[in-house]
């Protein structure tokens, strides 16, 4: 077997037993397959706070299968290679339950290559904090009128007296014309989907710290009564992600996107959440 960064792949597996952390395995009941290319195959079973390791054999039926070359595998274990980077470069592939793979970090204490156990690294101090500040946002009369409209199941846009452009959510001014907008117009509530951002990666909600379920769709909708760039930004009903089509305008070529309508919340408070999402209108 080849050594990478001075480490034998087998040594990482052979030391698993002594590095196993039962407290980290709490609630984990799964079979992990490791296909390390030319280095071999290993099967790790974690059940009721205990582990067993089998070398070689068939990896079918594992709950999660990790495919990686020897160099990357060693790099990951000794901290030379970042897992997300390796995934990104397709040097590391995870088949099956990705969350199980993510949990493997907690199952073992860090691998220390032989001979380096006594080498004392300086303790580097790291402090974790979460800043949490309450905020109060004044809507002002323009955004306030718009949000109030949502309570009444109306989507309002504000119109520029010079160029006639509609903005929704509204702004007090039309920036290109440098004038104050003065006329309210009801738009939609249905329209044509233009852009779909099909999101596999969810960012945490800064208001709650919670991460939303994926995949989800953020969309741009050209609501009825709007033209050109006057799209409305909201969410798509999650189970219709694969059922919709984007509209396109490319020179003379026009493709119409799916017709969508809003699904209103029961309790409307004058916020973006008054519309749960948009769904296919048929």
């Amino acid at each position: 077997m080849a050594e990478y960064y001075g480490v034998d792949v087998a040594d990482i597996f052979n030391t698993m037993k002594s590095r196993f952390r039962p407290e980290g395995a709490e609630g984990v009941d799964a079979v992990f397959g490791y296909d390390i290319g030319e280095e071999g195959k290993w099967k790790l079973t974690v059940r009721q706070g205990e582990m067993t390791l089998d070398e070689g054999g068939d990896l079918s039926g594992c709950d999660v299968l990790v495919k990686v070359d020897g160099r990357t595998f060693v790099g990951l274990n000794i901290g030379k290679i970042d897992a997300m980077a390796a995934l990104g470069a397709a040097k590391l592939k995870v088949e099956g339950d990705f969350n199980l793979f993510a949990a493997t970090g907690k199952l073992f204490t860090k691998y220390v290559p032989p001979g380096q156990e006594v080498e004392q690294e300086q303790e580097l101090v790291v402090l974790k904090r979460t800043i949490s500040v309450n905020q109060r946002f004044a809507t002002g009369p323009v955004m306030g009128t718009f949000l109030k409209g949502l309570k009444e199941k109306k989507i309002l846009a504000i119109k520029c007296p010079v160029c006639g452009r509609l903005q929704s959510p509204p702004r007090e001014v039309c920036a290109p014309c440098r004038v104050r907008n003065d006329e309210w117009v009801e738009i939609g509530p249905s329209g044509e989907m233009r852009m779909l951002e099909y999101c596999y990666y969810a960012s945490p909600d800064p208001l709650t710290g919670e991460t939303r379920e994926t995949p989800y769709g953020a969309i741009g909708i050209l609501l009825d009564g709007c033209r050109k760039d006057e799209v409305f930004w909201h969410l798509l009903r999650p189970d219709q992600l694969d059922a919709v089509q984007m509209g396109i305008v490319m020179g003379d070529k026009v493709v119409h996107g799916s017709r969508l309508r809003p699904v209103w919340s029961e309790n409307r408070t004058g916020s973006i959440n008054d519309i749960r999402y948009f769904e296919i209108d048929q």
Partner: peptide, 27 residues
């Protein structure tokens, strides 16, 4: 990503923005 999302309009876009990630150019 949390930091970028927090720069968006708190009344509307914070709920929708996906950090700096977008596939519009790809589309």
């Amino acid at each position: 990503t949390g930091g970028i999302t927090n720069m968006a309009d708190p009344l509307w876009a914070r709920k929708l923005q996906s950090g700096a990630l977008t596939a519009q150019a790809a589309v």
